[in-house]
Nucleic acid binder design. Structure first.
Length: 299
DNA sequence: TTCCAGGGGTAGA
DNA sequence: TCTACCCATGGA
């Protein structure tokens, strides 16, 4: 089987393990984490339909990428896979202004400058949008189950090992009659939201990749996200984070349970008060919240 | 059995 | 803008 070996160079500082374990996405299908290496694998479908398997790990300051494919990869395919992995790991992002605030604040915030801040994400906004919908009003185990079902039912299989599959495309979901999708996906009340999103994308009504355009003002983008059925304030804030906008926080049970006891000492604060905790971080609010939680977990 | 989980849509005020 | 109420699903 043809195997290509590719390399990527992140903007320093970079920490591979912290990046892939920055949140739970790395264990949601089709991602598979190997904690020991550490590395992760996932199956990807290329524009021509070919399905390949990636393995990604760190080699010193670089990121290495092994691609297994049935046929030899073209240069364009290699470049596309490099871009997808760079997107997932946010290798080209610059966190220097985030780190400046962290340094000024001293401990424990100064620990962030060792390469914390990159939030692992999916190669496409579509996958991130669906997975975000799968985190609403459900325990994490349910989210994992639902992602695995979508991949197993409608993901394109990797020919040498048909049990390994890619995340289903919007086309693959939209092609399934809704009743069948609802019955087999096990998404509960989320089924119509995911199916409608797939249909709006394949119908040309929505272009989710366009949401990555940094020229769109955050507030405008937030409104666009809320206009999608199944995306409310929590999901929109989570997606803004995944799109590289950190100026808005989502209020959910995780936020409430972390910030409440930590900053309000037994008092019952309002949602507005709780969300104001990270106001000083300006465009970096979400990362300040998230990695404060991460630092506490490491301690 | 009941509760509730990294909420969201809708109707009605 | 705010509040009830309902929404599937499965684990505790």
């Amino acid at each position: 089987m043809p195997t290509a070996s590719l390399r990527l160079t992140p903007v320093p500082p970079f920490d591979f393990y912290i990046t892939i374990s920055s949140h739970g996405w790395v264990v949601l299908a089709p991602n598979a984490l190997d904690k020991e290496e550490p590395s992760f694998r996932r199956v990807e479908q290329l524009p021509g339909g070919e399905v390949v398997c990636l393995e990604v790990w760190a080699d010193g300051p670089q990121v290495r990428l092994k691609v297994e494919s049935e046929g030899a990869l073209t240069g364009a395919h290699k470049n596309l896979l490099r871009r997808r992995v760079a997107h997932m790991l946010r290798l080209d992002d610059d966190y220097s202004s985030f780190y400046r605030i962290a340094r000024k604040r001293g401990k424990p915030w100064s620990r962030l400058v060792q390469g914390l801040g990159r939030m692992f994400r999916s190669p496409t906004v579509w996958e991130d949008a669906v997975k975000t919908m799968l985190t609403t009003n459900i325990a994490w185990g349910g989210t994992k189950r639902m992602a695995a079902t979508l991949v197993e039912e409608w993901g394109a299989p990797f020919p040498p090992d048909l049990s390994q599959k890619a995340f289903p495309s919007p086309q693959a979901i939209a092609a399934v009659p809704f009743k069948r999708f609802e019955a087999r996906a096990g998404l509960g009340y989320r089924a119509p939201y995911v199916h409608e999103l797939a249909r709006r994308i394949t119908g040309g009504e929505l272009d989710l990749q366009a949401w990555l355009d940094p020229a769109i003002p955050s507030e405008n983008l937030y409104r666009q996200l809320l206009a999608v059925k199944g995306i409310g304030p929590y999901a929109a804030a989570n997606l803004l984070m995944l799109l590289g906008r950190y100026d808005r926080l989502g209020f959910d049970t995780v936020y409430r349970d972390f910030v409440g006891p930590r900053y309000f000492n037994g008092r019952q604060p309002s949602e507005r008060e709780m969300l104001a905790v990270y106001d000083d971080w300006g465009e970096w609010k979400y990362l300040a919240y998230w990695f404060e939680m991460y630092l506490e977990d490491m301690a």
